[in-house]
Amino acid sequence: MGSNEANVILRGGPAQDLPERDRVRRVDDITARIKLVRSDRYEHFEPSTERVSVEGRELLAFDWTGSTYVAE
């Protein structure tokens, strides 16, 4: 796999704020939690032990654990 190829897929969470095209991505540390800024909040994802086949690639699944709002 090249260094810029996707290696994870994000599952769950608010579908309207995280389109399918943004769910497949590259992360450097597949053991760390992911925190994405979406609008006025953060979406949190944690790595699972499952792998998902997407377009012929095996990607590690990260599951949504919740949202927190950005402090002003």
Rank of each mutant, 00 (worst) to 15 (best):
E20C: 07
L18V: 07
S3F: 11
E55C: 08
N7L: 08
Y42N: 15
R33V: 03
L10N: 08
I9P: 00
E5V: 11
G66R: 15
R57N: 11
T31F: 00
A32P: 01
I30E: 01
T65M: 03
I30T: 06
T31P: 00
R25P: 02
T68M: 09
L59V: 09
A15K: 07
L60V: 10
H44K: 13
V24R: 05
L59Q: 06
L59N: 06
E72S: 04
R26T: 05
L59M: 11
F62I: 02
L60H: 09
F45C: 01
E58F: 02
L60W: 08
A6P: 13
P47H: 04
Y42K: 14
A61W: 00
G12D: 09
E20G: 07
N7G: 09
A61N: 04
R23L: 13
M1Q: 07
H44P: 06
D29E: 07
R38Y: 03
V27A: 00
T68Y: 08
S48Q: 08
E43I: 06
V70I: 15
V24G: 02
G56H: 13
S67F: 08
R33W: 00
L60A: 04
R33N: 07
V37A: 05
S48L: 06
R41K: 15
T49N: 04
W64C: 14
A61H: 04
R38S: 05
V37M: 02
D22K: 14
F45A: 00
T49P: 00
E55Q: 15
R51Q: 06
A61D: 07
P19F: 05
R26W: 03
D29G: 01
R51W: 05
S67D: 13
V70F: 02
R11Y: 11
V27M: 01
I9Q: 00
D28H: 01
V27L: 01
L36I: 05
L60Y: 05
D63T: 10
F62C: 00
T68L: 12
E50M: 07
S39T: 13
G66L: 15
T31M: 02
L59P: 04
A61C: 04
R41I: 05
N7M: 12
A6V: 10
V70Q: 09
T68S: 15
L18F: 02
R11M: 15
V54R: 14
S3W: 07
M1D: 03
Y69K: 15
V37S: 04
I30C: 01
D29T: 06
G66M: 15
F45E: 01
P19A: 11
E58Q: 11
A32N: 07
P14V: 12
I30K: 03
D22Q: 14
R11I: 13
G13H: 08
D63E: 10
R57F: 02
A71H: 06
A6T: 12
V8S: 02
R57C: 06
M1E: 07
D40L: 12
P19W: 05
Y69M: 11
P47C: 03
S67E: 14
W64M: 10
V24M: 04
V70H: 05
N7R: 08
T31E: 05
D22N: 14
V52D: 08
R11P: 04
G56Y: 13
V27D: 02
V70M: 14
G66K: 14
I9K: 02
S53T: 14
V54Q: 10
T68F: 09
G2D: 10
I30F: 00
F45P: 00
K35L: 06
T68C: 10
L18T: 02
